[in-house]
Design a binder for these strands. Sequence first.
DNA 1: TTTTTTAATTTGTATATACAAATGTTAGGT
DNA 2: ACCTAACATTTGTATATACAAATTAAAAAA
Lengths: 151, 151
Amino acid sequence: MKIEDEIKSTIPLDISKKIILNILYTQNVTNEKFNEILKPYDLSGEQYNVLRILRGQKGNPANMCAIQERMIAKTSNTTRLVDKLLLKNFVTRNVCPDNRRKIEVMITQKGLDVLTELDPKVIEHENYFSQNLNTEELELLNTLLEKYRNQ
Amino acid sequence: MKIEDEIKSTIPLDISKKIILNILYTQNVTNEKFNEILKPYDLSGEQYNVLRILRGQKGNPANMCAIQERMIAKTSNTTRLVDKLLLKNFVTRNVCPDNRRKIEVMITQKGLDVLTELDPKVIEHENYFSQNLNTEELELLNTLLEKYRNQ
DNA sequence: TTTTTTAATTTGTATATACAAATGTTAGGT
DNA sequence: ACCTAACATTTGTATATACAAATTAAAAAA
């Protein structure tokens, strides 16, 4: 469905406005579907994102700053996200011995296990949308988004 | 900057994953910039969206359902958004005389004035990003997003 | 060594999001 | 008229977002 129809716009929209609404709306659609995948695991999207970042550390701990840097929503409150993951025993949190200002966060085996279980579902989710485009179109969409976003 | 660099990914990502992250990230970038525009007016993005919908009614009131239908984030809590707008005298709220289950929400002159003041800033914001692409690329991006999103 | 500056993280507060349950109203069936 | 189902909206609760202020520790300067 066209973006004008999705938001029930009665007047024709400028292409610049359509694009920005289309990005917002498309992100909402993908995100809503992703949250449904995570729901049975009692994880929010941002909590999942933190776990994914920690797995990427391959055994090394990550401090709060490093997690924040790799996050998509840069303004998320990493402290509170890690708090929630700690309650579920998906991560450990320790003061860094070399620099006591820093906090070392590590994913636990339980956290790794939940990610392993989620992996195929996440890939299925990604493909659910990308299957609508062929390889060439996918590369094009990716390039156009990068070009659009950067100043 | 490429999406892999934005999130400091150490491994190459599948195109399907890149697209979904790219949409999420791009939406975050545009949204953050838009919030800065709204900040001096003490409006949130969703509050602005409700005002825009009400202006589109051209003098006719809209009930909560109608507002909800036209909103981008379908799960937003319209009642509370209207509450906030009411406190700022940007809207009026009355029980519908024909059907007392319904609430008639209307934009005030003060609400219309703030939208008029915002209009050029919003257009500038939209163009800030779209100027990176030519007309053909903009149409292509719009089409690809619609194709991507729909099942 | 003491003071000041910078860095890393946490806490506070207001608002927004997500979702379920509750409330009040209308419409339909008997 | 009475009961039930459907509709429109509100309220409750937990979590997340946005942003500023506070806390604590390390590094640099005096």
